[in-house]
Design a protein around this nucleic acid. Structure first.
Lengths: 254, 254
DNA sequence: AATCATCATTCGGGAGAGCCGAAAATACTA
DNA sequence: TAGTATTTTCGGCTCTCCCGAATGATGATT
């Protein structure tokens, strides 16, 4: 999947990054645990982890190694790198306030959706939607909203790269069906997610276009299915579309 | 400095991390620029940067490489890793509200202070105090508050490791003078920074102790010197100490 | 206490991987 | 069209990373 044929990738760097990833998933780990999990010699794991520690990217607490606060600076940097992200944050909060649902601003990167901002909203308290989370584009409302406004060619590239994994029974896993849906989304102006990512959860997503005509990202609101239907739902959609438009305007004027 | 004698550090990993650091500082860079700056061959820089891209830690925009949003997830993870950090965030905001000054919560890592939370406050708008920023402990109010409540042995270790660089004319750069100051801080209960880090800026810092008796971090307020003196200042100190105590209590009860 | 078990850490040596340099490809300028 | 500065590819040599075995350190079990 990630390993192509003529791979000039640096094995050492890849191992280091896998360790970083593991330390996040496990919330810290010991040398043997890392070695076992990544199928490398304990001594090798040790060298990697001490290198990371010497560079101050990792801290040692007792016998377990943890990700250090240096990642705070890096995370904060990418979060504030584009001025548009600041605007998006504001309108994500406004959306959560007015919709009373969990609101999320998502952008595409490497063919996946990344949550750049999230705001809980009165009735949308469920967790699991943390900043930085990576999701599939084809199984989420924001993701489909983004795909719908990309050049078809790029959509194909993305499908080739990440595929269309089925996350629930409702997930669209057929390429043709997806393209039909994307056409519908363009027509309609917003995207739906009917339990396609998580059972029992529905969402609506609206694209946020940049002034250049490219998709910048997408805003979405999500909640339990029983709170996301009927006339309530129509109101939600209206609020969402309004705020997405405000955000577009705000971006265009800067 | 970072290169010890019997260094088992992985050269490849170190180079990769230096590139990451450079991409942050410069806000993206091209291959040649990286190679020139780090004194490596362009082809080498290219291999590193494409490895990072393949692992989705870096994005390519035209001919320049930028840090990617994967760091968002890592940053968010370390920010929320310790439940105490959440409490600290809340009280940092309260402090900014009540003091109307820039408020910061700092912890020690690898002998340096790291800003974990910051809140602008009505009259403390000046920037440069972003989340994740790393500062010296001996030249900041929070830093000195933290040092004052560490085992003397560790303070020596830190001085040996990072030194006492002089940042302004006021910076304490003499070891003995520093220890005198730390004793005074313990006595007084809070630390001062009189233009020791940045000319024209003063700050007050209070330690935040954990229930185990170790320093957890420090809260501080900062502002331009002319707004940080007289009876105004006494009120600030009182507010700061009160909120630091509240935070300690809140931590102890969890 | 003493033995055992588990894990972290050190270190030498061999294999393989990373680094360089040269050349090709690409993008801009004049 | 030629010239300049960049990125990118690729072969090969050397250095470095990785492994395995040995040593320390820590804690559990009897």
């Amino acid at each position: 999947m990630t390993t192509n044929a003529n791979d000039r990738s640096l094995k050492t760097t890849v191992t280091t990054l896998r360790i970083v990833e593991l330390l996040r998933e496990r919330d810290g780990a010991g040398v043997t645990e890392i070695a076992r999990e990544l199928d490398i010699a304990p001594s090798t794991a040790h060298t990697h982890v001490t290198t990371l520690e010497a560079q101050e990217y990792v801290v040692k607490e007792g016998d377990t190694y943890h990700l250090g606060l240096r990642f705070l600076g890096l995370g904060n940097f990418v979060r504030t790198r584009k001025r548009r992200f600041g605007k998006a944050e504001h309108y994500t909060n406004v959306l959560a306030e007015e919709s009373e649902r969990r609101s999320i601003f998502t952008v595409e990167e490497h063919g996946r959706g990344v949550y750049v901002h999230t705001s809980p909203g009165k009735h949308g308290v469920w967790t699991q939607s943390t900043v930085g989370k990576r999701v599939y584009l084809h199984s989420t409302a924001s993701g489909k909203a983004i795909l719908a406004h990309m050049p078809t060619e790029r959509v194909h590239e993305i499908i080739d790269r990440v595929g269309l994994p089925q996350e629930t029974e409702q997930t669209i896993h057929d390429e043709e069906a997806l393209f039909d849906e994307l056409a519908e989304i363009r027509e309609r102006g917003y995207a739906l997610n009917v339990e396609e990512q998580i059972s029992g959860v529905r969402a609506v997503g609206a694209p946020v276009m940049g002034p250049d005509g490219d998709v910048f990202g997408a805003l979405s609101v999500a909640g339990p299915s029983n709170r996301m239907k009927g006339e309530q739902f129509d109101r939600l959609t209206e609020v969402l579309l309004g705020i997405a438009e405000e955000l577009e305007l705000s971006i265009a004027l800067s």
